[in-house]
Amino acid sequence: MRVHEHPILGQSEPESISIYFDGKPIPAVEGEPIAAALIAAGVRVLRHTEKSGRGRGIFCGIGRCNDCKMIVDGVPNTRTCVTPAHDGMRVETQYGLGRGSCHE
């Protein structure tokens, strides 16, 4: 959910672009982290771990922990909390190390 009105920060920037999450278009603000757009759209599971397959979502939010890695425009292991969103970007849930899509 977006915080459109804020008592101190005022109004937020409007969503003006779309990115594709596992093929579905979701609205985003140009340049915001991909993870922010996904969270705003209610997406919380960003990847599944290699060994147990358990889901992971954002954890540190500043590029330290790697929990938010996804496949972005075909590139696996992209930290979505620090990667800016651009119009038309394709973002996919990553399974394990995301090798599959690299070799497709």
Partner: peptide
Amino acid sequence: MTAGAAQTMINEHRVL
């Protein structure tokens, strides 16, 4: 998540 991650999301990126 860390409290800092939540703070980054609400105050910098304006998402809950």
